[in-house]
Amino acid sequence: MTAPKMTASKMTDSMPPESPAHVPVLRDTVLRWLAPRSGGRYVDGTFGRGGHTKAILEAAPGARVLGLDKDPEAAPAAAALAAGEPRFRFLAGDFSELGSALDRVGWDLVDGILLDLGLSSPQLETPERGFSLRHDGPLDMRFDPGSGETAAELLDRLEEREIADLLFGMGERRSRAIAWRIVGRRPLRTTGDLRAAVIAAVGPRRGRIDPATRTFLAVRSAVNREPQVLAAALHEAPGRLRREGVLAVISYHSGEDRPVKHAFRRLAEEPRFELGTRRPIRPDEDESGANRRSRSACLRILRRIEDAPGEIVRPDGDGR
Rank of each mutant, 00 (worst) to 15 (best):
A35K: 07
S38F: 00
S38G: 15
S38M: 04
G39A: 06
Y42G: 03
Y42W: 08
G45A: 14
G45P: 03
G45I: 02
G45L: 06
T46N: 08
G48H: 13
G48A: 04
G50I: 06
K54L: 13
A55R: 04
I56K: 00
I56M: 13
E58G: 07
P61Q: 08
A63S: 15
V65M: 11
L66T: 10
G67A: 06
D69F: 03
D69Y: 06
K70Q: 15
K70P: 10
D71G: 11
D71K: 12
A74T: 11
A77I: 04
A79N: 05
L81V: 09
L81C: 12
A82P: 05
P86Q: 09
F88D: 01
D94S: 05
D94E: 11
F95H: 08
A101K: 04
L102E: 08
D103E: 12
R104H: 11
R104L: 13
G106Y: 10
V110F: 04
D111K: 03
G112N: 02
G112E: 00
I113G: 01
I113W: 12
L115C: 02
D116P: 04
G118Q: 06
G118K: 02
G118R: 00
L119I: 11
L119E: 02
L119H: 00
S120K: 06
S121E: 06
P122S: 07
Q123R: 07
Q123D: 10
L124P: 07
L124F: 08
E125R: 09
T126P: 01
T126M: 02
E128T: 15
E128S: 14
G130L: 12
G130N: 09
F131A: 01
S132M: 11
S132I: 03
H135G: 00
D136T: 13
G137S: 01
L139R: 11
D140Q: 01
D140R: 03
D140A: 07
M141F: 04
R142F: 11
F143C: 08
F143W: 10
S147Y: 01
S147R: 15
D156N: 10
D156M: 08
D156E: 14
R157T: 13
L158I: 05
E159Y: 01
E162H: 11
E162G: 09
A164N: 09
D165P: 02
D165N: 14
L166G: 08
L167I: 11
M170K: 14
M170R: 15
